[in-house]
Amino acid sequence: MKNRMVLALVILLVGAFLFANGSAETQSAPAYPNKTIQMIVPYGAGGGADISVRLVTKYLEKELGQKFVIQNVSGGSGTIGFTQLANAKADGYTLGYFSSTQTNDGLLFEGIKYDNTSFTPISMYASDPHIVIASKSSGITNMKQLIEAAKKNPGSLTFGLGGAWTSHDFLRMNLESAAGVTFKRMVFQGGAAAVTAVAGNNCSVAVPFVSEALAQIEAGNVVPIAISSSERYALANQIPTIKESGFDFEHTMWRAFVGPAGLSADIVKVLDAAIGKVMSDSEFLKEAQAAGIFTRYIGGSEFAAFYEENHQLYKKLIETALK
């Protein structure tokens, strides 16, 4: 008898939850966005991608008046997250983080279904430059010496990368074809490990992101050579750009927000406008600089065109490398 009463209570409770849930969803929907937005970040919490997304969404929440939930779907080297994003409903409530190279993952990994047509570009919000650094024992102090050293011993100057097919690796490919040299690849797990190897004189050159290299530059353990952006970096103003060193060369890794393919133009407009506003918020810019994020805003049709162009560019790079 007592048991049955408990059972009835349980059923009632569950029913109440179901009902409460059902009724909440039938309310009519005002303009986009009217509920929590999920943001898929295919990389781990606390990493560069995650940090930048969290900072931008913090301000986006104020702008759009809705909560953002960050999902770190980091499995399969990021491919699981991008697949999830590509397959998500294009209703504007599932968006994702995106960077330079992912539209070409299909060339690299078997079984990947997404490509450049699987996503709707929204806006770019950052573009991170690399810093070329050299070990003290290598004796290299500028770009010219670096290229000379590579030319003198073709294929034997060690070049540290943060991983295969990462922005580091693409920079190396670009640099090799621009200067007509070949380096000896040394692949580490992450840019910080590559910097450590250069600081320990185990590797001659590396191209980490600025945030990965600054500590060792300040400690005087590595020699900064040049920065790969078009302008010098405010917090390390003594480092010249690669362009200044006489090479017409620029390489950054951009970060952007995208949605699944088929996102309506209206939704893209709302999001793009909000992101644009955040990117000119002085408080945001201050926080971003402190967190080592290189903000750069490109939105609207300009970004859509850039996205396509970039896809073709990397496609060519990967195809040549795989040959």
């Binding site: 939850f17 849930n21 999920q38 939930v69």
Partner: peptide
């Protein structure tokens, strides 16, 4: 912890 637990494809209950 803002971890979204698996949702159903046949049928889904979210609270």
């Amino acid at each position: 912890l803002s971890v979204i637990l698996p949702m159903g494809t046949w049928f889904s209950l979210t609270l």
